[in-house]
């Protein structure tokens, strides 16, 4: 397969699925390890992904319950490699071992709390940690928007502080680079497009923009503070006479809190008909999640996004530095 930098940028959920299939064809189907796989929705997603040639599932979990659930939803458990581990923490440990050994390029969360999985995965032993903070990146294929819209973080970090926000940005950049968008345009949301003392969030956004301007955050175009409409609607940006390449053309919007990211993504899914794919980024392997409310397309594109990221991260330099140390920065560039 060609180096990730030479592949065209992904523009829709279907593109993500097609890219995952193409990776499978050229490198052999990639494997996703599922921690605590005894969950109906997860098994269904694994089945779909396997049938479509997106990913091969390695199920770590309670064999009896997995087989029972497979029966109820009418899929063949023999299609999967199953590792019988009944305890959920043990399942997380075994999954981390498999990922650390390079036998799977993505991890999927099954029937266990996200916190349990993350705690195991990020422990020193497995050397899977990339940055201090992991975050959720939602990638939405929105009807009426001309590219994939990333929303972060609506799932992990409750109220990011300055450091955490930088990590969230770095995780989004890694996810977007994997999708062939090498210089993502990032909008830092804060209700208005200027610094206002009434809105403390705007101060932080402005600081981060300035850092990006100075080249301290490489390979991005960042604009902030920005209001959501100027970030995604060129017309509004023009009316307001804002002149920035990010305005009206954002790849990623960074929310100020988990509520904002979450509600924004759900608004686009429920009211606008967006197709949602999501991945937890920040470790050296991506973590996929599917939930009860997901449609078939959601489930497939979420796993596909995990595979696309996982396959790309295997080839990429993951030491993406955001720092105040300019020397280190220049060396990386």
């Amino acid at each position: 397969m060609e180096h990730i930098n030479n592949l065209p940028a992904l523009r829709s959920a279907q593109d993500i699925i097609d890219r995952a299939k193409a990776i499978g064809k050229s490198q052999g189907t990639k494997r996703v390890v599922i921690a605590a796989a005894q969950d109906e929705d997860v098994l269904e997603a694994a089945h779909l992904a396997q049938r479509e040639g997106i990913a091969e599932g390695v199920l770590v979990g309670d064999r009896k319950r997995i087989q029972g659930l497979c029966k109820t939803i009418n899929i063949d458990p023999k299609a999967f490699q199953i590792e019988d581990v009944s305890d959920e923490t043990e399942a997380a440990i075994r999954s981390a071992e498999i990922a650390a050994a390079g036998e799977a390029c993505a991890i999927m969360k099954g029937f266990l709390p996200t916190s349990t999985l993350l705690k195991v995965l990020l422990s020193k032993k497995y050397r899977l940690k990339r940055v201090e903070t992991v975050s959720h990146v939602a990638v939405l294929s929105v009807p009426g928007y001309h590219k994939l819209l990333g929303i972060t973080d609506g799932g992990i970090v409750v109220r990011p502080n300055f450091e955490e926000k930088l990590a969230i940005i770095s995780n989004a950049v890694m996810t977007y680079r994997a999708m062939g968008i090498l210089i993502p345009k990032i909008a830092l949301l804060a209700t208005v497009d200027m610094v206002r003392e009434e809105l403390p969030e705007t101060l932080e956004c402005a600081t981060i923009s300035r850092m990006a301007e100075e080249g301290q955050i490489p390979h991005v175009q960042i604009e902030g503070p920005v209001s959501f409409d100027t970030a995604v609607d060129r017309r509004v940006a023009e009316v307001m006479r804002f002149d920035s390449p990010v305005m009206g053309d954002a790849d990623v919007v960074v929310a100020s809190s988990i509520e904002e990211g979450n509600i924004l993504a759900k608004s686009l899914v429920n009211f606008v008909g967006a197709i949602f794919s999501g991945v937890i980024a920040g470790a050296k392997v991506p973590i996929c999640l599917v939930s009860r409310a997901d449609t078939v397309m959601n489930k497939m594109s979420s796993i596909a996004l995990g595979i696309v990221c996982g396959a790309a991260w295997e080839q990429m330099d993951l030491s993406y530095p955001i720092s105040t140390n300019t020397y280190r920065q220049k060396a990386w560039l």
Partner: peptide, 15 residues
């Protein structure tokens, strides 16, 4: 306000 503003604007622009 950050939540409300983004929600409102997502509905008015893309929605």
């Amino acid at each position: 306000i950050y939540v409300g503003n983004s929600l409102y604007k997502s509905l008015v622009t893309l929605g």
